[in-house]
């Protein structure tokens, strides 16, 4: 299942990473090297094997449904590149 340059551009779009033409070409080669290498997993018989969902068997922890944190908008917003009155500022998305 080799990827071509168009596929690289499609997944870069999905991953929201802009790539130049040169980069797309280089990434195509690197991804194919890695994907060729992981192809060996096709040798493994996985018939009837359950996919792993949790590496350590444990039951989900429960806690009381009550507010344990919050009321700290300054802390939440402290690292925002742009903010105003406890809101994150982004470029206009709705005309």
């Amino acid at each position: 299942m080799a990827v071509d340059e168009a596929t690289v551009r499609r997944i870069a779009k999905l991953a929201r990473i802009s790539v130049s033409d040169d980069q797309a070409h280089a990434i195509e080669g690197e991804l194919n090297t890695i994907l060729d290498w992981v192809e060996q997993l096709n040798e493994v018989n996985v018939e009837g094997v359950e996919p792993m969902t949790s590496v350590v068997e444990m039951s989900m922890k429960m806690r009381d449904d009550e507010v344990a944190d919050g009321e700290c908008p300054e802390k939440v917003i402290a690292n925002a590149p742009a903010n105003e009155e406890h809101f994150y500022l982004v470029p206009k998305v709705v005309e």
Partner: peptide
Amino acid sequence: DAYYLRAQKVRTLIK
């Protein structure tokens, strides 16, 4: 299915 699901099945076998 071809990649992620298969890898997680292999992981079950490794464990």
